[in-house]
């Protein structure tokens, strides 16, 4: 197998991973809102989101269905459907405002500066074409290689994602591969342009747990070797604990808590985060005789206009002021949170 360093040509990875904090962030999202037009009017899917991602870092975006995490990815990638648009805010990539660049330049950024892996690998691959054809087409389009060079590159990419017998697999159709293998092919395609940022939207959710373990290990290793930053979208707190440096919890389109994974797990500063962590059954956790902790009720419907904190109707810590005033994100050191009672929560 060819080593990654020879594939990339140099060992930029080492340089990347030690550059956190000091320089301009790789990705800086500033007050982004994304709205969708629906028959009932405009619905805000992402509401004033702020995110900073440094080179080589992994940030997990955590939330339940409808929290806006997938829309955030599509917004960054410039892949919003025609009904969606960014209504406010800025997205900086390496100091450049990418919402202002031309459509052509934006397309060029997709794949080379940033690439995305989706949840369902079967629907992301064209069932009518061989895997090799699809990778080769992509590589040639990106890098203007000859057919022969592109085929060699495609094989290298499959080696990189540890697909055995890569030459044979290039001639396989997507349906001939297992779910895990298909996801490896998608990762290989995402890596084809040497992206600086890999956005992975629930990449292991559709996979079995033993295959998930393989893919997580692969992503971790690739990230280390290539020095990519990763924005990892998941609803699984186990996966967060395993793969991310920092996490951002989203609720109803807003970020509600952001901080290093270790700190957020040990001392959440927002009752929603605390509730999520407590409601996950663990193998070694509370005995079966105990009830699971539950967050009562359910999340707000998209488009619902709320006066106060979006989580107030479900919150154990709610007080009158939570219901009638907008709660802003508060920053304390390397943590930020959206809660009026964070101090009391932390002390509890």
């Amino acid at each position: 197998m060819i080593t990654l360093t020879s594939v990339i040509g140099n060992a930029l990875g080492d340089i990347y991973s030690f550059q956190m904090e000091s320089t301009t962030p790789l990705l800086h999202i500033e007050g982004i809102s994304t709205v969708f037009s629906t028959p009932e009017g405009e619905v805000k899917a992402v509401d004033g989101l702020n995110l900073v991602l440094h080179k080589g870092e992994t940030l997990a975006l955590v939330g339940e269905s409808g929290s806006g995490k997938s829309v955030t990815c599509l917004t960054i990638m410039g892949l919003l459907p025609s009904t969606g648009r960014v209504s406010e805010g800025k997205i900086w990539f390496e100091g450049r405002d990418i919402l202002q660049v031309s459509a052509k330049d934006r397309r060029r950024m997709c794949g080379s500066d940033m690439a995305m892996v989706f949840q369902e690998p079967m629907t992301s691959l064209n069932p009518l074409f061989k895997v090799g054809t699809q990778i080769i087409e992509f590589v040639r389009y990106r890098r203007g290689m000859t057919q022969e060079a592109a085929r060699k590159r495609a094989k290298e990419l499959l080696d990189m994602v540890r697909i055995p017998e890569a030459n044979d697999r290039l001639n396989s159709y997507p349906h001939e591969l297992s779910g895990g293998m298909r996801q490896r092919v998608m990762i290989a395609m995402a890596l084809a342009g040497n992206p600086k940022l890999l956005i992975a939207d629930e990449p292991t959710t559709a996979l079995d747990v033993t295959v998930q373990a393989q893919i997580l290990e692969l992503l971790r290793d690739l990230q280390k070797e290539l020095g990519m930053a990763m924005l990892f979208i998941t609803h699984d707190l186990g996966v967060v604990a395993e793969i991310a440096d920092r996490m951002c919890v989203m609720y109803a389109g807003q970020e509600v808590e952001n901080g290093p994974v270790i700190d957020v797990f040990s001392r959440p500063l927002m009752p929603y985060t605390a509730g999520l962590i407590r409601s996950v059954p663990t193998l070694t956790g509370s005995p079966a005789s105990e009830r699971l902790y539950t967050i009562p009720g359910q999340g707000p419907k998209p488009g619902m206009v709320l006066n106060g904190c979006a989580f107030a109707p479900r919150c154990d810590w709610v007080q009158e002021s939570c219901r009638n005033q907008k709660v802003a994100m508060e920053v304390a050191g390397n943590r930020s949170f959206r809660c009026l009672r964070a101090k009391e929560l932390a002390a509890s």
Binding site: V209, T210, V211, A213, Q214, L237
Partner: peptide, 24 residues
């Protein structure tokens, strides 16, 4: 193997993982 593959929702635990080769 199935048990060791389950991600542990606790960042302080570094699982001693036994990753199975291949798939079903």
């Amino acid at each position: 193997a199935l048990l060791s593959a389950i991600p542990v929702p606790d960042p302080t635990v570094k699982p001693n993982r036994q990753i199975l080769e291949g798939e079903l």
